[in-house]
Design a binder for these strands. Sequence first.
DNA 1: TAGGAATATTCCTATTAGAGTATATTTAAG
DNA 2: CTTAAATATACTCTAATAGGAATATTCCTA
Lengths: 114, 114
Amino acid sequence: MNHAMNALSVLGEPNRLAIVELLRDGELTVGEIAHKLEIRQPQASKHLKILTESEILEVKADANRRIYKLRPEPFQSLESWLKTFQKIMEERYDKLDDYLKVLQQKDKTKKSKK
Amino acid sequence: MNHAMNALSVLGEPNRLAIVELLRDGELTVGEIAHKLEIRQPQASKHLKILTESEILEVKADANRRIYKLRPEPFQSLESWLKTFQKIMEERYDKLDDYLKVLQQKDKTKKSKK
DNA sequence: TAGGAATATTCCTATTAGAGTATATTTAAG
DNA sequence: CTTAAATATACTCTAATAGGAATATTCCTA
């Protein structure tokens, strides 16, 4: 939970979120990330550092290259956190159900369709 | 998706996240929120405005009070967005994931009974 | 071992965003 | 009609932060 909250604040930055979405499709080097997002290398490195320190990413050294990829934990944490809002999410579904029932009722009174 | 990204940046602010977590347990007025979070009323109002404009909250007027509560949509969006990381989440912790799936299945059968 | 490529780091600047304070607005009560 | 309560808004200040440029570091290769 605490981890999920930290992840949220880190992912609040657009470029960092973009990095995470890039890495969803597989690991990438710093240069590749900088190129794909059209940002400069130092900025990429800085964001990657923050993402790594918050344990959203992990690095693997390959000679003078650094290969970054996603860690699963923060996303699992976020999922757990989201589950604590399940009740709210369901409330509206129920309302929608009720609404649909109302529509069906009106439909019945208007013209008996089916 | 776009909505989920916006929600992330809005929830990146600690006080706003705290407000959202407060409202998980039910609707509250501005004063109640400010008091519970030990922040000043104008700050509460500002954060609530941002949260409302990003459609995370909705307001109801009651005389000179404003009652805020969560909207389900952004959380559903976040859930959808998180699902796009399912592959990464499944890579490791297969056992835990299976367990969660079992729980989800049980949950689904509960819901569909209603 | 010199040079170049990839990345990290440092320092600076400018923008931004949140906090604080004062004030405006709305509404109920007396 | 005045006042007080609840909330929103406007203004200012300050601090955090992202970006830019230059430089340091590491590692490979000729």
